[in-house]
C-alpha cells in the first residue's frame, strides 16, 4: 500500500485516494481546428513511462482535491507531490 502525501492534508494511506492517470495533458486549445491525430493522441495515447511519471491523484476520501505527483514507476516511490496548476519540481536521476 502506498503512503501518499496530499499537499493539503499530509501523508495518508492509498485507499483514501483515487488515481487520475498521467498529468499535464492539455485538451486541444481549439477543438474544432484540431486534427484527427491530435484528438487521437489526446484521447488515447499516454506516455506509459518506465521511470519518473507525472500523474494526477485525488484525495477522494479526504479533502476531495486533485493534485499531481512525481512517482518512479520502477519502484513506486513518490519523489514529490504538488498542487494542481503548479509546475512539476525537477526530478534528479529520473529515467524514462
Amino acid at each position: 500500500m502506498l503512503l501518499i502525501e496530499c499537499p493539503y492534508c499530509g501523508e495518508r494511506p492509498e485507499p483514501e485516494f483515487a488515481y487520475g492517470g498521467q498529468a499535464h495533458i492539455a485538451r486541444p486549445p481549439h477543438p474544432a481546428a484540431a486534427s484527427i491525430e491530435e484528438w487521437t493522441s489526446y484521447l488515447y495515447y499516454r506516455d506509459n513511462t518506465r521511470g519518473v511519471h507525472a500523474e494526477r491523484w485525488r484525495h477522494t476520501r479526504g479533502c476531495g482535491r486533485f493534485f499531481n505527483a512525481l512517482r518512479d514507476t520502477t519502484t513506486d516511490r513518490f519523489l514529490a507531490t504538488y498542487r494542481a496548476g503548479e509546475r512539476p519540481p525537477p526530478s534528479p536521476g529520473g529515467r524514462s
Binding site: E14, Y19, E55, D76
Partner: peptide, 13 residues
Amino acid sequence: DAYTSYTQRGALQ
C-alpha cells in the same frame, strides 16, 4: 492496482 507501474507487485488491499 489503481496506478501504472512496472514493479511486478501491488498493494495488499
